[in-house]
Design a protein around this nucleic acid. Structure first.
Lengths: 208, 208
DNA sequence: GTCTATACTCGGATAGAC
DNA sequence: GTCTATCCGAGTATAGAC
C-alpha cells in the first residue's frame, strides 16, 4: 500500500520520514526497536507510519537505503559510485568507518538486518545482495588501481581484497559493538599498511 | 530452573539434548527457529525442552557453547586452547572454516546470536565477549610465533592481526550465507599469504 | 521428568472514523 | 493522510496432571 500509486506529496513525506528515522536511530540507538517505538519517535502513530511502508522489514530496509544515500552525499563513496579520485580510496573509506563509530544505532540496525536478510524471503535480501556487490565492485576497481600504482600487494587479486576489506569492516563492527574501545578505523588503516608491497613508501603515518 | 539443583542425570540429559540440537541445526539449518520447532526436532515438547533451560536465549547460547566444545575435540583449536603446535595455526584455522561451510545452520545461528548478544542484557552477552577474547588471545600468541619465525608481517602487532582475522572470518560468513559460492577458507588462506613478509617462502600453495 | 493445556505478552497488521 | 481501536498470530513461559 505504500509505494505504488503515491504522488509527489506522498513520496516527499516518505523521504522525510526516512530522514527523521535515520536521525533518531543514529542519536538514540536501536535495540530491536518496534515499529511503534520508531513511529512515536518520528511523530506518527504506528498505523500512520505503516501507511508508507508495506511491512516492518521494508521500512527498516528503506532506512538503510536512505542511509547510503546520505553517506554518498557526505563522503562521495557508495555501493555504486566509483567516481572518487584515485588514491582517495583509503582516506574516504576510513572517513566512513570513523563516521560509523559515531552512529552506533545505525551500525546495530545494519548488522541485525544484514544477518536477517540472508534469508531470501526477507524483503531486504536483494538490497543487501546488490549493495554488497556494488560496494565490492567499486572497491575492487580502486584497489586494482592501487595495485597498478604499486601501493598494494598484488599477491591477491583485487576482487578478493575487496571481499576481505568488506569482511573486516563488517566483522569489526560486531567487535566494536561488543567493546566500543575497539578502534575500527585504526585497525583497517593498519591492514592497508600491512598489505603494502615491501618496497612501497608509506603515504600517511598509521593511525592507531 | 535448569542448572541449579540438577543431579548428574539431569546434567547428562542436558548435554544429550545439546548434542542432538547441534546435529539437527547443522543438518537442517536454522531460520530463526522457535523453541517449539527445535524441541520437536529433538524429540521433546516445548515445555519439556525448556525444563532444562531458563529461556530461549540461554538455550541457544548453550548450543553454541557445546559447539565450541565439540570443535575443540575435532580440531584441537578453541577460544581458550592455545596448545596447538606452532605452525599449525594456519592449517587448523582453515580446517575449522572449511568445516563451517558444511554446517550452514550453525553459522547462521552463530551470526544471529552474535549480533543479538551485543546488548549487555542478553543472556549470551558474556559468553560471546569471553569467547571472542579467548579466541583472539590464543590466536594472537600463535601469530606472534609466526612473526618471530619470519612467516608473517610484523608491520602490525599480533593482537591487531588477531582482531583482523576474527573480523574477516565473521564477515566472510555473512557474505557466504548470502552467496554460498564464496570460498571462505580460500580467501582466508590468501590473506595469510598476502601478509607474509616479502622474503618468506610459501608453505603451501594458495588454495582458492 | 515430561507432557498437555493455557495464559500472557508483544508486536505487526488492518478496519474504519475523521 | 492520519488517527484510534482492534484483531490476530507467534511464541515464550508456566501450571498442573501424569
Amino acid at each position: 500500500m505504500a509505494r505504488r500509486g503515491s504522488y509527489a506529496k506522498g513520496i516527499a513525506k516518505r523521504e522525510e520520514i526516512l530522514s527523521r528515522a535515520l536521525e533518531v536511530i543514529a542519536r538514540e540507538g536501536y535495540r530491536g526497536a518496534s515499529v511503534k517505538e520508531l513511529a512515536e519517535a518520528v511523530g506518527l502513530s504506528q498505523a500512520g507510519l505503516l501507511h508508507y511502508f508495506d511491512s516492518k522489514e521494508e521500512l527498516f530496509t528503506e532506512i538503510l537505503r536512505k542511509r547510503d544515500e546520505v553517506d554518498v552525499e557526505m563522503f562521495g563513496t557508495a555501493p555504486d559510485d566509483a567516481a572518487i579520485e584515485p588514491g582517495e580510496l583509503r582516506a574516504g573509506y576510513l572517513r566512513v568507518i570513523r563516521h560509523n563509530a559515531e552512529v552506533p544505532g545505525l551500525v546495530q540496525l545494519f548488522a541485525r538486518m544484514n544477518v536477517d536478510a540472508v534469508d531470501d524471503a526477507h524483503p531486504g535480501h536483494d538490497f543487501f545482495r546488490t549493495r554488497g556487490e556494488g560496494l565490492r565492485d567499486a572497491f575492487s576497481a580502486e584497489l586494482a588501481a592501487m595495485q597498478a600504482a604499486g601501493e598494494l600487494t598484488d599477491r591477491v587479486d583485487a576482487d578478493t581484497l575487496a571481499r576481505i576489506f568488506q569482511a573486516v569492516a563488517d566483522g569489526l563492527q560486531v567487535q566494536w559493538m561488543l567493546d566500543p574501545a575497539v578502534d575500527m578505523a585504526g585497525i583497517v588503516a593498519q591492514l592497508f599498511d600491512a598489505l603494502r608491497p615491501a618496497s612501497a613508501p608509506l603515504p600517511h603515518a598509521t593511525e592507531g
